[in-house]
Write a protein that binds this DNA or RNA. Structure first.
Length: 678
DNA sequence: ATAGGGTTAG
């Protein structure tokens, strides 16, 4: 079929469905020769077609040749830009149009506002909104949902709510915009409430609104609601495309329901990298590092290229298990195959720091051209967990001249100062945060400050701060106070803190253990027994402590008293020799760290079998002299092992890094980076 | 006729 033989009437539908620029220009030529060129309507059609085919240049050429451009031609050009992700051009064209005196209509405003939303340009958007009111379109649902979206994308949900409540007519898109916006501002509960209101008003839900609702379920960790949403989608037979199923996977994964997430994932008829990333991140975030990394490998075996998000999650998994080898291999892969962006760089900084290489983290950080807030916050937090409070403070001081610190920055800074025992600095920067940056201290900030003071023995002051809090003090602050009181044997205030802790019904077994140990240390035997009874009744079991060490790229994990290891004899032999040398140097076992009721001699033996010691001995036996060791532990390091590791670092002349659940202990020449502040 | 709401990650 030759184009020339077609009549003008045949050309139009052909143009509508055509996605190839070359074919469009042929049709274009025929239109010119048959005199159709003069019709403004056809020209707008032509612009839209070029736009759909991604040929903005040709679209613009047609647009330029129109002698008298009416609103339709302008709209076509705006839509062409919009479809090709050129929001700046949309806004400029809109301005030019208004400048030339052409009156915008509903679609002009809709497209222009969407462009502002993408650019997060609230100021320009509000200028456009004035024009909307002037032209009498403020009650148009399309324009209305666009302004809601603008506010949502600029994080102004309060403003969006005002417009929303005033709207005379709301369709599903308006409701969805609000619900999704509220979810993304972190208020899942409110989003669900709004959805219930939407249902009450008889609105029909579609897939997009369900997607928002699923995000809400992920957000508030409500598996029950998530299951009912899933059921609803099946009953209503809503089309389940990749996006919907991916959101389901994500929702279950974020709720820790990894079996369900995996089941949905495995049944997906087609998956994309986003689906994979969602599941990988689910495993990584819930502490199943090995599963996360296995999925990344499986993905690659299937010929898929991992995207930034899946790599970021995989790195999180490496950080968790302290696997430098895997983290490095991902780094190599990225250098070869992926463009390093800011998110990925930050994930690498975090990984290197958590695998013990703070200097590598620093080097990477120095390489980043423009550092955003999260990047700064990350490096400050990294120095904090390494017990390098001074360096964290120096970085903070550089940062504050370049970018506005936020609540997370101060949380990282205060925690860094606390880990290093920089009490005066902690007090000072807490005040600066409140008075100069007008950041309302959150519970987390208070917990850092209380921790800082109590750990330094200033329990009176710490208690007064808790009393002065404007919000109701939660578990975190009382635990911080209790742990300081336990350390400094301040039984009076400690008892008060312990009682508050128990009232707040801690779910964390470690917190209950702390309370029980405190009561035992204070010789309040009845109370100690009562706490143990609570633990038993709730069926809580002590999480087994384990330590892991990476040797030649393989991770070796040890449980306390682990006798199953093939090198067990050698490990114990080495530990005995080391103990004798330590004793000669003045080491006295700190049996108060043994919580079982045993004879003194048996207690010494128990200490000897602590998992961190087994891991260290194994590492020493299987690496070359001088190699530094990284041990990761799932609980806090025991006080006696801390002392012992200092001795070992001298005897074997090695750097030993122990990363426990809270922070790093960098042992070198008989000293620890934490300066015994731990 | 055209236009508005949507999945992962530091």
């Amino acid at each position: 079929m030759r184009l020339k033989n077609l009549s003008p009437q045949d050309l139009k539908p052909l143009l509508l469905g055509c996605r190839h620029s070359a074919l469009i220009s042929q049709i274009h030529a025929v239109m010119v020769s048959s005199g159709l060129f003069t019709s403004g309507n056809s020209l707008a059609q032509l612009i839209l077609s070029y736009g759909r085919a991604g040929d903005l240049e040709s679209a613009h050429k047609v647009f330029d040749k129109i002698p008298l451009r009416r609103v339709d031609s302008w709209n076509a050009m705006l839509i062409a830009y919009s479809r090709n992700e050129c929001p700046v051009e949309v806004v400029n064209a809109y301005k030019q149009m208004v400048f030339e005196g052409v009156k915008p209509d509903s679609s002009t405003f809709t497209v222009a506002l969407k462009a502002c939303a993408i650019l997060q340009d609230l100021e320009k958007g509000e200028v456009i909104w004035e024009k909307v009111v002037e032209c009498g379109y403020e009650n148009d649902v399309f324009v209305g949902s666009s302004i809601l979206n603008l506010y949502a994308k600029c994080g102004k949900m309060d403003k969006a709510a005002i417009v929303f409540e005033k709207m005379q007519k709301r369709d599903t898109v308006c409701w969805t915009t609000m619900i999704t916006g509220i979810v993304q501002s972190g208020k899942g509960r409110e989003a669900v409430d709004l959805y219930r209101r939407m249902q009450k008003e008889g609105m029909v839900s579609d897939g997009v609104v369900m997607l928002g609702l699923m995000q809400a379920c992920a957000n508030i960790a409500d598996t029950k609601l998530g299951l009912s949403v899933h059921g609803y989608m099946i009953r209503r037979a809503l089309p389940m495309d990749v996006n919907m199923l991916t959101s389901l996977v994500d929702m279950y994964a974020k709720n820790g329901e990894l079996d369900l997430a995996t089941r949905v994932f495995r049944k997906m008829p087609c998956k994309n990298t986003v689906s994979w990333s969602a599941l990988i991140s689910g495993f990584a975030q819930n502490g199943f590092a090995v599963n996360a990394l296995q999925l990344l490998i499986e993905m690659q075996l299937l010929g898929l290229t991992p995207d930034v998000a899946s790599l970021v999650s995989a790195l999180l998994a490496c950080s968790h298990i302290g696997s430098l080898k895997l983290g490095r291999s991902i780094h190599g892969y990225v250098v070869r195959k992926v463009i390093m962006d800011q998110v990925l760089s930050t994930a690498f900084i975090d990984m290197y720091a958590k695998c013990g290489l703070i200097s590598c983290a620093r080097a990477l950080y120095e390489h980043i051209g423009s550092k955003d807030l999260i990047c700064w916050n990350t490096i400050i937090a990294c120095y904090g967990i390494h017990g390098l409070g001074r360096e964290a403070l120096t970085l903070f001081q550089q940062m504050k001249d370049k970018i506005e610190p936020d609540h997370a920055t101060f949380a990282a800074l205060l925690s860094a100062l606390s880990h290093s025992g920089l009490v005066a600095e902690g007090r000072h920067w807490f005040d600066v945060m409140v008075n100069e940056y007008n950041i309302k201290p959150s519970e987390k900030h208070y917990a850092c400050l209380v921790d800082l003071l109590a750990r330094a023995g200033e329990v009176e002051e710490a208690k007064d701060i808790i009393i002065s809090m404007e919000m109701k003090p939660g578990l975190a602050v009382w635990v911080a106070l209790l742990s300081g009181c336990h350390k400094h044997k301040k039984f009076l205030i400690g008892e008060l803190a312990a009682n508050r802790v128990l009232e707040l019904i801690p779910e964390n077994i470690g917190t209950l253990v702390l309370a029980a140990n405190f009561f035992a240390a204070a010789k309040m035997w009845d109370k100690a027994a009562a706490v143990r009874k609570v633990m038993k009744k709730a069926g809580m079991k002590k999480v087994p402590g384990y330590s892991a060490v990476e040797v030649n790229g393989r991770l070796h994990a040890f449980l306390m008293g682990d006798i199953s290891h093939p090198q067990y004899e050698q490990i114990i032999g080495l530990l005995c020799n080391l103990e004798n040398e330590m004793k000669a140097m003045g080491y006295v076992p700190k049996t108060e760290f043994v919580l079982q009721n045993l004879e003194e001699e048996a207690k010494v033996k128990v200490l000897c079998y602590h998992s961190e010691r087994l891991a260290i001995a194994f590492g020493l036996l299987n690496t070359a002299p001088g190699t530094r060791l990284l041990i990761t532990k799932n609980l806090r390091v025991c006080g006696d092992c801390h002392e012992v590791t200092k001795f070992i670092s001298v005897i074997v002349k090695r750097e030993i890094i122990v990363r426990d659940v809270k922070r790093f202990h960098h042992f070198k020449d008989g000293r620890c980076s934490c300066g015994d502040y731990w």
